[in-house]
Structure formats: structure tokens, C-alpha cells
Nucleic acid binder design. Structure first.
Length: 459
RNA sequence: GGUGGAGUGGCUGAGCGGCCCAAAGCAACAGCCUGCAAAGCUGUCAACCCACGGGUUCAAAUCCCGUCUCCACCUCCA
């Protein structure tokens, strides 16, 4: 079975075939850098990271674009009296740090909206020329997309114009309540630096035109997959689609939307102010646990955050980590995706059923532990190879990175272990336990085996 | 008003016509192992048949109809 993806435009599972065999181009809506990331942003980035890794594991090269919206109403507002550009970069950095910590691969391209103003102007000019956009009727530099000129408007979200609520008033020189801004005229209370010279006057781009312009710049008139959070489906993605198609481009072949992170059943969002931030999380568990938890529901299912969620994920992850730690002497020369269990592959191909894939991972870990206890080196090697291939696909690789152990610590622990062994042989268990406590205080976990004691550094 | 989605064990969460007397993880209990632990393994625990009521089918958690509850979106949001 080959990969099937749920296309949210056609609302069905479709076999995924790249437009160019062996190569996949994807565009993912990145954040508006208005405030620090919360779990919802991380989930979105993670979903597409796993999709990308899976495509790579199944012999595709992938070009991935994830934009940064660095000019926007909220960026200007939240910057307050500060330089908004500096503010936006600072927020962007907090996203980058979180992505890095979560082991999310760098996108191929990470364009900023402010770097592509000229492309947006070009696209807007074209839309005006084709009769799908117009300069504001009030003579300002506002430019709007003319939704009434595009009969397919609403095709992505299966809506009809007459059922949409739209702007309650026709304002800023709009012709119709559903028309949306391609460019917004400079406002006197906004910094001069937040406006660019355009054929229509000083203005800054609207949100939707950015993605259309940048997708075209990097991926051309058509590409394979467009991704983003479910809450961006409308209006953002609907508008992107309308702009690009009205300008004559095919645009995305597949539309994917990840479901949201909820808390107590309600959407986690910046506007509701109920976001669980990266800072909150650092207390709750390791980054590995957070990544694991964010992977633990299929991407189209809501994922509800609770107090115990990260703790449970940590425990589940520790099983995998524990297996890899106790088998560090089993050398796997290189990751071989051919070793992936069929059940794992099937799960991933079924619209990225990561929870199903994790179930397979745990099955193999158990089999590996059994082989370990039975000293069945052949089966153990199989298991280790499979586990390592799977965690590469899932991006959980950092769980087994060997911590750096200083020679000093090494010597210290071994010395104490010898003493403890002597105490045990002398049946002085009180002393043995005391030494164990001393060793554990060094951040080391002991595992007594049949004829030796293994230890690992927690750091 | 419109458009989508969801309701599965104590918790998280897969399954979406037969392999389901429902995966996996967490939590809980017991056994093995251990000087005792930890880790690991094994078993148990578990879903009054998968919100409720009808129906289709040889066969339904899975399809259809109705009801209830919840969530998201309808121009700020990943």
C-alpha cells in the first residue's frame, strides 16, 4: 500500500502521487511572529515534519517551504513602542529555538513576508489586470480581491458566498463584504518602516497574499502539498487558493490541515490566552516527551492537553529510551529504512497514523527486551535496527543520543561500583544501598544484571 | 443561519463492514528476576458489544436514519 493522504479540499483520502516522480514540494503556513509559540504551533510544525520525514524515508526528495509572517497588524501592535522588525525577529527566534529543541528539521526555505513585497505587488498587479482585484473605492491605497469575480470562491471550504457572514459593514473602500485585502494602506499611526511604495500608494501587504506570492516564488505555479492548521482553512487558505487560481496558477494538489491542540476541550489559541507555552512545558517534561505527546494522536484528531499528558508521554518514551540505553553496545552501522516493520509502514501510509506506528514501535521494543533478557543476539539486533529506523522516521532520535560522560565521572562511578560489589559480596547491604544512593546522586541509574551492573548517565 | 469534525476501558488514544470477545501507552494488581530495589519480561485488570434509539446486512464500533452532547470555522489565530 502506498501513501494515502486526506485532501481537505476534496474531503477524501487520496493516493498520494507527486507531480514529479520522486520529488515532493510542500508549502506549510508558518507562524505570525507576534508572540511566543504555544503547543498548537508546535503541533502544526511537527505534523509536517513527520510527513516530510516519511516522504524522505520512502525515497522522495522534499522541498519544503515554511514561511514567517513578520509584518501584520498584531506584530505592529505587540511591538508597542519598540522597533517592530527587531521585535518580530526576537519572537521568531523563540519559535526557532522550540523547533530545534523538538528536533524539527529546518525547512528548505524559510522566507519572510517582508523579503517578498515585490512578488506580492506583482501578483496583485496581475489580479487587478485580470479583473479579480481592485483599488479601494475610497481612493486609498487599499487593494481588495473581488470575491464576486471569482465563481469558485468558497471551493476549499465548501461554502457559498451568500451564506458567509463577511464584514458587517462594507468599509475601507470594499465593494463587497467578503472582499479581502491584498494590500492595506499605510496608517498614520503606524511606523513609516511598516509601509512600502506600491503602484497604489504607501501600503503593506495583507496576510493572504504573502503565502500565494511566496509559494509561487519557491515552488512555481503548482506544487504537491499545502499544509497548515485547521483554523487557517478559512479565510486564510480559501483566500490563498482564490488569489492563486484567479492569477492562473494550479496551486496545491493536496490540502492538508492538522487538527488543533485543545485544553479542557477548547481550542488553545493566542486570542483566548489559554496557550500552554514553551516555558510552561519545560517544567512538565523533556522535549522528547513533548514531541512524543504531540505525536500521540493522529494529526486530524484533536489533542487535548492535561496535567498528566506530558508525564504519561515521558513514561512511554522512557520505555523506548530504556531499551536503547541497555543496548548501546549493539552496533547499528547505519539507519536502514528497509528494516521498517510492515505494520509500521502500513500505519504511516494510512494518512500518517502515527499512534498506530507508535504501537508497532512499542511492540518491537518489547520483543527486543525479551531478546535481550534471553541473550538472543540475532533477534536483538533485528529489534534494535527496527527501532532505530522507526525513531528516525518519527524524529524521536534525540532520545538515545549518548550524553557526554566525563572521564572523571566514569572513574568515580566505577570506583563506587567496585566498592558496592565488595559490600554486596560481604553481605553488607546497608553499605551497598548507601553506595547506590551515592551513585544515584551523581545522576546515574544502576541496573543490576545477572553477572554485572550496567549504569547510565541521566544527563 | 451555513460548513466541517467528534463522542471507544480509570486516563491518553488507534481501529472506520468480517482477522475486534477492540492496538499501543499510562495508571493499577500479581508472578518471574533481585540481598532489597530499579529496569525488564509474563499474566491480570479492564470498554454492561465502542453516546442513545431505530434500520440495512449472513456479518456493524465501523454503513443509513433520527436524537442528545461537544468542538472548530464563517475575514485576528498553527
Amino acid at each position: 500500500m502506498a501513501l494515502e493522504l486526506f485532501d481537505s479540499k476534496t474531503q477524501e483520502l487520496r493516493p498520494f502521487t507527486p507531480l514529479t516522480a520522486g520529488h515532493v514540494e510542500m508549502y506549510v503556513c508558518g507562524p505570525t511572529v507576534q508572540s511566543a509559540p504555544h503547543l498548537g504551533h508546535l503541533r502544526s510544525a511537527l505534523v509536517y515534519d513527520i510527513l516530510r520525514r516519511w516522504l524522505i524515508a520512502t525515497n522522495h526528495t522534499v522541498t519544503m517551504v515554511r514561511n514567517v509572517t513578520d509584518i501584520d497588524d498584531k506584530v505592529l501592535v505587540n511591538a508597542g513602542s519598540r522597533d517592530w522588525i527587531e521585535f518580530a525577529r526576537e519572537v521568531e527566534l523563540t519559535f526557532d529555538e522550540a523547533y530545534l529543541a523538538l528536533n524539527i528539521l529546518e525547512p528548505t526555505h524559510k522566507p519572510h513576508a517582508t523579503e517578498h513585497i515585490a512578488d506580492m505587488i506583482e501578483l496583485t498587479k496581475k489580479l487587478i489586470q485580470l479583473g479579480h482585484a481592485y483599488q479601494a473605492t475610497d481612493g486609498s491605497a487599499n487593494v481588495f480581491f473581488d470575491t464576486t469575480s471569482w465563481p469558485e470562491y468558497g471551493e476549499l471550504t465548501n461554502q457559498k458566498l451568500e451564506n458567509m457572514e463577511g464584514e458587517s459593514d462594507v468599509t475601507f473602500g470594499r465593494k463587497s463584504p467578503n472582499d479581502f485585502a491584498l494590500f492595506k494602506a499605510h496608517k498614520s499611526d503606524e511606523p513609516e518602516t511598516a509601509a512600502w511604495e506600491t503602484p497604489w500608494g504607501k501600503a503593506r501587504p495583507g496576510w493572504h497574499i504573502e503565502c500565494s506570492a511566496m509559494a509561487k516564488y519557491f515552488l512555481g505555479e503548482s506544487f504537491d502539498i499545502h499544509g497548515g492548521g485547521l483554523d487557517l482553512r478559512f479565510p486564510h487558505h480559501e483566500n490563498e487558493l482564490a488569489q492563486s487560481r484567479a492569477a492562473g496558477d494550479q496551486f496545491a494538489n493536496f490540502w492538508t490541515h492538522n487538527a488543533l491542540v485543545t485544553i479542557n476541550g477548547n481550542k488553545m489559541s493566542k486570542s483566548l490566552g489559554n496557550g500552554v507555552s514553551v516555558k510552561d512545558l519545560e517544567q512538565a517534561g523533556s522535549w522528547g516527551a513533548i514531541r512524543y505527546w504531540l505525536s500521540s494522536a493522529q494529526y486530524r484528531s484533536n489533542l487535548d492537553y492535561s496535567e498528566s499528558s506530558i508525564r504519561d508521554a515521558q513514561a512511554a518514551l522512557d520505555r523506548i529510551t530504556g531499551f536503547l540505553k541497555r543496548t548501546t553496545n549493539v552496533k547499528v552501522i547505519e539507519i536502514d529504512y528497509a528494516k521498517l516493520p510492515q505494520a509500521f509502514t502500513d500505519a504511516m501510509n494510512a494518512d500518517l497514523n502515527v499512534p498506530g506506528a507508535l504501537a508497532v514501535l512499542h511492540d518491537v521494543v518489547r520483543a527486543g527486551n525479551t531478546a535481550f533478557d534471553a541473550s538472543d543476539t540475532e533477534k536483538l539486533l533485528d529489534s534494535v535496527e527496527q527501532v532505530k529506523a522507526m525513531i528516525h522516521v518519527l524524529g524521536l532520535t534525540f532520545v538515545y543520543q549518548e550524553p557526554v560522560i566525563s572521564e572523571e565521572l566514569q572513574r568515580q562511578v566505577e570506583e563506587l561500583l567496585t566498592k558496592r560489589q565488595e559490600a554486596k559480596l560481604a553481605k553488607d547491604f546497608a553499605l551497598a544501598d548507601q553506595i547506590r544512593a551515592e551513585i544515584e546522586d551523581l545522576g546515574v541509574t544502576l541496573k543490576d544484571m545477572k553477572d554485572q551492573t550496567m549504569w547510565s548517565f541521566n544527563g
